[in-house]
Design a protein around this nucleic acid. Structure first.
Length: 710
DNA sequence: GGGGGAAGGACCA
DNA sequence: TTCCTGGTCCTTCCCCC
């Protein structure tokens, strides 16, 4: 290796390289490390490799961007700045007017998640530096390892050079998923609509929970620590010597009762307490009026701690004042470098130079910066946002034989097709991604005039793209180290939305509404594996089960609240209905109504939910016809008129959630015991396919492969 | 000039 | 000896209408 280590007389590119490759200690547990020593080891381990060469190249590109930006800055006149400042000020006052501080948003992040799970399961690892991953790449490391500079996204072989005693444990996703679902059970008690960001991280809006919590008796906020012998795993992993946050609750004496208060801090402390007792793992949390701040806060007292920004403008601005821009989600190493070149390192400087930024950056970018400088962020957690693409990729040792590459491409398409099938997705754009042995990444895409999802269809496009790439380098071989296939351009919600929504979605949402949004069910508290409420609540349990249960087929109120019995009744009713109907000619277009499960019921006639609707009408062939929405008997026997009434009723009275799973087309003559007949409203034009877009008409003939590789 | 596809890149966990 | 995977969003370039 060369002798141009950090601090030596390296050229500008090499100095710059350090910012890309050097230790990123912007992570909990990595403060006060000997950066120079660590960087020297990293550099020596990397230098001369193809990866290093490619990083050097990328660094030069970033440096050029910075150069260009500084040249632009040199051309900015005072007059331009004054005009820009007027625009910025106007925007600030608009943003200030819309500032929302009433939501209580929480970001929860499990501490060193994968590593913590492995340490929990293998106590001998607790006192050693360890990381999860492989010699190629580490996913995370424990806090002992972080002291050596070992961190996530670092190749294992370099980590070993930093810390020769490092134990590398392979990834075990099934295990992490299982733990994650335990954690999510706890989350859902505070916000049923929490937004998971990954296995170990989620956003919650606990505003509604706090409102209810204010009136809860103490018993509902109390947890008794298990007696000796009650616990399976008695100790939490020793992850942290000096946690800035709370001490481990496992140190508390068994049998003691922990009572939590009604404030946001107390609710979050309780949540973390329950997570720890359920999983033996600790979590950190941030509480703030918006998602951006909550995310930054959760890192503040990591590990095993929490931090809250009170919902006041002054508090928010104080917090933002010295916050390094790199701590803000969305600002990575490149943006950090660009801003640093302008003398901007913390968020308050961002605000001071906003006029300049508005002249040098795109509108999207500077608007984002402006929001950050004001401590603004999203106050509403949007779940179920539509997936935009799906892909699969594989890294391997050098592969240069075309036949092997085509075979691999086919395998990738098959894998991808299976995943698409699981989610019922079809897309128009197929993208091939290749990374050559020099770490150069290329993507080649082809947009078709129709949507594809099968392995063969995807492969047809991917193969053409790969062949074009092979031709492009011919007669040299294509030397690859990664290949991936992606499908995107899925039909939008409007296009793929079934004509009518599932009645199950209808029931589910009504149930959620009934529960008060994020309501805490007494019984759910007892599902925690270790904790129990103590003293036991004596007040009557809040039942979330709507009464009476009404059969959606015969519309009779049931005397039972037992779901199995209720489902059996529906099955019988459906059989009877199918037998009575005889003529199944009108069945095409029917929908399947799955057996009802807990949490999907609604009381008959519950209807005063405003909003947009289009719902599968659960109507059987019985007469008289009874509207399942308003519960009223209809005078007509004409199904079109009846369906029209149901549609009208739904359109005006209910708010629904689309729930597509479980909706299937029932083919003629295949009425199962779980099938409700639905008579499609022939007047309804909502299912008409959208007119072909201009691009669809234009795309096909133009997007020839040749165009990509001139 | 606007819309949209392609390609590449930043960023995230 | 060895530097991931899967996703979203943004920017830039280019073509076509």
């Amino acid at each position: 290796m060369g002798d141009a280590g950090p601090g030596s007389a390296a050229g500008p590119a090499e100095d710059g390289l350090l910012s890309r490759m050097a230790l990123n200690d912007n992570k909990a547990g990595m403060e006060g490390l000997d950066r120079e020593k660590i960087n020297k080891i990293i550099l020596e381990a990397s230098k001369g490799s193809r990866f290093y060469e490619n990083e050097l190249k990328k660094e030069r590109q970033v440096n050029q961007r910075v150069e260009k930006m500084l040249q632009q800055k040199g051309r900015v006149a005072e007059e331009h700045l004054r005009t820009a400042q007027v625009q910025v000020d106007k925007m600030i006052s608009e943003l200030e007017r819309s500032r929302e501080l009433s939501r209580v948003i929480v970001h929860v992040d499990m501490d060193a998640f994968y590593a913590a799970v492995e340490m929990r399961d293998r106590p001998e690892l607790k006192d050693q530096p360890m990381a999860v991953g492989s010699m190629s790449m580490l996913s995370t490391s424990n806090y002992h390892a972080r002291r050596f500079g070992v961190r996530a996204a670092m190749p294992g072989f370099i980590a070993k050079k930093l810390c020769p005693n490092l134990v590398i444990v392979p990834l075990n996703f099934d295990k992490y998923k299982a733990v994650s679902s335990q954690v999510r059970e706890v989350f859902s008690d505070y916000d049923q609509n929490f937004l998971p960001m990954s296995l170990d991280e989620a956003y919650l809006d606990i505003t509604a929970h706090l409102e209810m919590r204010r009136n809860w008796p103490e018993c509902q906020r109390s947890y008794r620590l298990p007696e000796a012998g009650e616990k399976e795993e008695s100790l939490s992993p020793v992850l942290f010597d000096e946690s800035p946050g709370t001490t481990s609750s496992f140190q508390d004496p068994p049998g003691r009762v922990e009572v939590f208060g009604t404030t946001a801090e107390e609710a979050v402390r309780e949540m973390r307490f329950r997570i720890e007792h359920k999983t033996s793992l600790t979590a950190s949390a941030g509480i703030a009026p918006n998602m951006m701040l909550a995310k930054v806060c959760s890192d503040k007292n990591k590990p095993n701690g929490q931090y809250r920004i009170p919902p006041e403008r002054r508090e928010v601005m104080d917090f933002i004042l010295d916050l390094p821009v790199r701590k803000v989600p969305g600002i990575g190493k490149v943006t950090e470098k660009m801003l640093a070149a302008l003398g901007i390192n913390c968020c308050s400087q961002l605000g001071q130079k906003m006029a300049l930024l508005s002249l040098l950056f795109s509108e999207t970018s500077w608007h984002h910066f402006l929001q950050i400088s004001l401590g603004l962020g999203s106050t509403h957690i949007v779940r179920n946002s539509e997936r935009k693409s799906m892909s699969t990729e594989r890294t391997f040792g050098e592969m240069s034989v075309a036949e092997e590459q085509l075979t691999l491409c086919k395998e990738l398409c098959e894998d991808l097709a299976q995943e698409l099938l699981k989610e019922g997705l079809k897309g128009k754009t197929v993208t091939l991604k290749v990374k050559n042995v020099k770490f150069e990444v290329k993507t080649r895409a082809l947009t078709l005039p129709y949507s594809v999802s099968s392995a063969n269809e995807i492969y047809t496009s991917a193969r053409d793209l790969l062949r074009a790439e092979l031709d492009h380098v011919s007669p040299e071989p294509l030397r690859l180290r990664l290949m991936g296939v992606r499908v995107s351009g899925f039909a939008s919600v409007d296009e793929k939305r079934p004509q009518q929504r599932s009645i199950m979605g209808f029931l589910q949402l009504q149930q959620a509404e009934l529960a008060g949004g994020g309501a805490k069910d007494f019984t759910s508290l007892h599902t925690d594996s270790v904790l129990t409420h103590s003293p036991p609540c004596t007040s009557a349990p809040v039942s979330l089960m709507p009464h009476p249960l009404t059969c959606p087929v015969c519309f009779k109120d049931m005397e039972t609240s037992d779901l199995t019995a209720f489902n059996m009744h529906i099955d019988e009713c459906l059989k009877c209905s199918a037998a009575q109907k005889g003529d199944e000619g009108s069945l095409s277009g029917s929908r399947v109504l799955e057996t009802v499960t807990a949490g999907e019921l609604q009381p008959a006639g519950e209807k005063d939910k405003p909003g947009d609707v289009s719902v599968t009408s659960g109507v059987c062939g019985h007469t008289p016809l009874v509207c399942p929405v308003c519960g009223q008997m209809q005078e007509t026997a004409d199904l079109t008129t009846f369906n029209h009434h149901v549609d009208e009723c739904l359109n005006h009275n209910v708010l629904l959630e689309l729930r597509e799973t479980g909706i299937q087309t029932v083919h003629e003559g295949t009425v199962s015991t779980h099938t409700l007949t639905w008579f499609p409203n022939t007047q309804d034009t909502r299912s008409s396919p959208p007119p072909p877009s201009k691009k669809a008409k234009a795309a096909a003939p133009k997007n020839t492969i040749d165009r990509f590789f001139r």
